[in-house]
Design a binder for these strands. Structure first.
Length: 568
RNA sequence: UACCUGGUAGUGUAACGGUAGCACAAGGGAUUUUGGUUCCCUUUGUCGGGGUUCGAAUCCCUGCCGGGUAACCA
């Protein structure tokens, strides 16, 4: 898009530009991505990462990664490491000096909690979780207050310090905000600010046994980090009044002209044929439906990376789908389109056959080998040319020969001439079958005048097929991935129990005896290839060797044979 | 049920009182040493009903439909 074209702004860009114009925060923009380290990141998180880091980049602001590690019972260092890798990879940001932890602010948050208690805005409650639930009330009935609500601040302060010092058991006491017992927004009915958790925290160890709740912590974290636009998903909409209320109670953030972050919500990403809930993804791993979190069929960021997605394609996808407050379901083909478009420009083309059958060139000299030039990438001349060996016995795709072909079948069938890409024109003379009637060898003759793939007399062929010299071929394992689910919306809450029914049993097909061009033996994990007419592949670094490389399929091209069938 | 929120082609997303546009999908055609790519063309839309206005996707009222929330999770 050129600078002169009218640029359409999404609603967040409009808000930010209005804030900059009004001189809020001195025109500065600060965003953050605040995951809890309790699982692996998936494509849904990628939307948030792209949004937050993209806005910071667009308005020359700052982007932070902040771990919202306020619940030690659920969090682990393993997740911290994977999240840092994934955020760096997706955002293309080195995150240097911009990784923070909510746990680093525990003392500051504690001090502010005492401030609220002293002001009579918070109190220690002695109700059990069950009692609290019972007393919560209904939309028409207010909450029943607990005794601590009327205690003097000094007494609550003492009780709170006892909570901190371990005088109570888990669940015995909480610190609650004194707000509104009858609010129609249940989040405002005296929400819990601190609870007792006697678990080892992955960063602070046993230092704390009281931990702040999300609502109390999040706005403070944003304020400490001078976040200007705190962007979260729609389900936090009802928490916004609380977010503001807490900041209102603290002198530092409520005095006139004080610094204030604001919360804005956007609709989370839903993708067709994709499960996005962490819980269900965990079930897929635990139930061995996939190998692990980075299985290429998983919608996790590490899974997409292993599948062959590029960060550029994911960023392009996120930009394409836009951002709004309307719940939506995005067709997964949109994501596939993004990687196809990216790879089409950069993937190196290579020849390979997945299901090989021999093609013998009857009139080609026995024992002769010649090297032929092949273009690496027709989309980019700078990628140059490589040489591929040609000989009398080749492998071609089984599907590229059909004894009784329908109309519009452009490949090998007796009497028909096709082009072997970058090599010669070959006319099919027949085939050899085994006792069961299976084709075990295709036979043909070549025209020596057509070296390189064009004929001096200008005659045309309709089909161009790929091939590999049998003697020189690399044996490879190729893993073809299909959708994990057959149901359009497996994440639908109704299907919670039985979503396993919708698993696609053919989601992984391993082709063990694929034959590839010799140059692919040295392929590295960072490289992406397109096997002519089959699809885009990347090297799977796990147990891949030069003798037998392992390739993962990224996206398939259109199924050409289905097209012929449909038309014929 | 209560409260909050949203409704623009098949799917997403613009238009912010003034010509309903874009992408993907679908269909057709041209080019092609990948049945890929590229290029061109076409089909399809403002949830319903009222009102305000010269003029409404946009503002108001009302109905309908969708989503969220009612954790000592985030």
């Amino acid at each position: 898009m050129s600078e002169t074209e009218p640029r359409t702004l999404n609603f967040l860009e409009q808000i930010i530009e209005a804030d900059i114009a009004a001189g809020k925060h001195g025109g500065r923009v600060g965003t953050r991505f605040p995951p809890e380290p309790n699982g692996y990141l998936h494509i849904g998180h990628a939307k948030s990462i792209c949004l937050n880091s993209g806005l910071a980049r667009e308005y020359k602001g700052t982007f932070f990664l902040r771990f919202d590690d306020t619940n030690p019972a659920k969090e682990e260092t393993e997740y911290v490491e994977s999240i840092i890798d994934d955020v760096k990879w997706i955002s293309g940001d080195d995150l240097k000096d911009r990784i923070f932890f909510a746990s680093d602010y525990f003392q500051q948050m504690y001090d502010w909690a005492e401030e609220l208690i002293r002001k009579g805005k918070a109190y220690v409650c002695d109700q059990s979780p069950e009692q609290m639930k019972e007393n919560r009330g209904t939309p028409s009935e207010p909450m029943k207050p607990s005794a601590g609500r009327e205690f003097p601040p000094e007494k609550n302060l003492e009780l709170f310090r006892q909570m901190r010092d371990g005088k109570f058991a888990e669940g015995e006491r909480t610190l609650r905000a004194k707000i509104d017992l009858a609010s129609p927004n249940f989040n405002m009915r005296d929400p819990v600010m601190y609870r007792i958790i006697k678990a080892e925290h992955h960063r602070t160890g046993a230092k704390w046994i009281i931990y702040p709740m999300y609502d109390w912590a999040h706005g403070l974290e944003d304020a400490i980090e001078r976040i200007t636009h705190s962007i979260c998903t729609l389900e936090f909409e009802h928490h916004r009044p609380l977010y503001d209320w807490f900041l209102d109670q603290i002198d530092e953030f409520s005095k006139p002209g004080a610094y204030r972050p604001r919360q804005y919500e956007f609709a989370r990403l839903n993708l067709t044929y994709t499960v996005m809930s962490k819980r269900k993804l965990l079930e897929l791993v635990k139930g061995k439906f996939v190998s692990d979190w980075s299985d290429p069929r998983m919608p996790t960021i590490c899974g997409l990376r292993r599948r062959g997605y590029t960060p550029e394609s994911i960023r392009a996808f996120c930009k394409e789908i836009g951002v709004a407050r309307m719940n939506s379901m995005i067709d997964v083909v949109k994501l596939e389109n993004a990687i196809r478009e990216d790879l089409n420009k950069r993937a190196l083309r290579r020849m390979g056959v997945l299901k090989p059958v021999k093609l013998v060139i009857e009139n080609y000299p026995e024992g002769q080998t010649e090297m032929l030039d092949a273009v690496n990438n027709p989309e980019n001349e700078a990628d140059g040319v490589r040489q591929v060996p040609f000989s009398k016995v080749l492998y071609i795709e089984q599907d590229d020969f059909l004894e009784n072909a329908p109309k519009k079948y452009f490949r090998l069938t007796p009497g028909q001439e096709v082009r072997l890409r970058y090599a010669y024109y070959v006319k099919c003379t027949g085939c050899v079958k085994d006792d069961a009637g299976n084709v075990i060898e295709v036979r043909g003759t070549y025209d020596p005048e057509t070296r390189g793939g064009s004929s001096p007399d200008g005659r045309k062929v309709q089909g161009t097929i790929h091939w590999v010299s049998a003697e020189h071929a690399v044996n490879a394992e190729v893993r073809l991935y299909d959708r994990l689910f057959t149901k359009e919306n497996p994440d639908d809450p109704q299907d919670l129990k039985d979503y396993k029914e919708y698993l696609n049993p053919n989601s992984l097909e391993i082709v063990a005896d694929a034959k590839l061009e010799p140059s692919l033996a040295q392929a590295s994990p960072a490289e992406k290839f397109q096997f002519e007419r089959i699809g885009y592949f990347c090297v799977d670094s796990v147990d891949s060797t030069p003798e037998k490389p392992v390739f993962n399929r990224t996206v398939s091209l259109r199924d050409s044979w289905a097209k012929v069938e449909k038309k014929g």
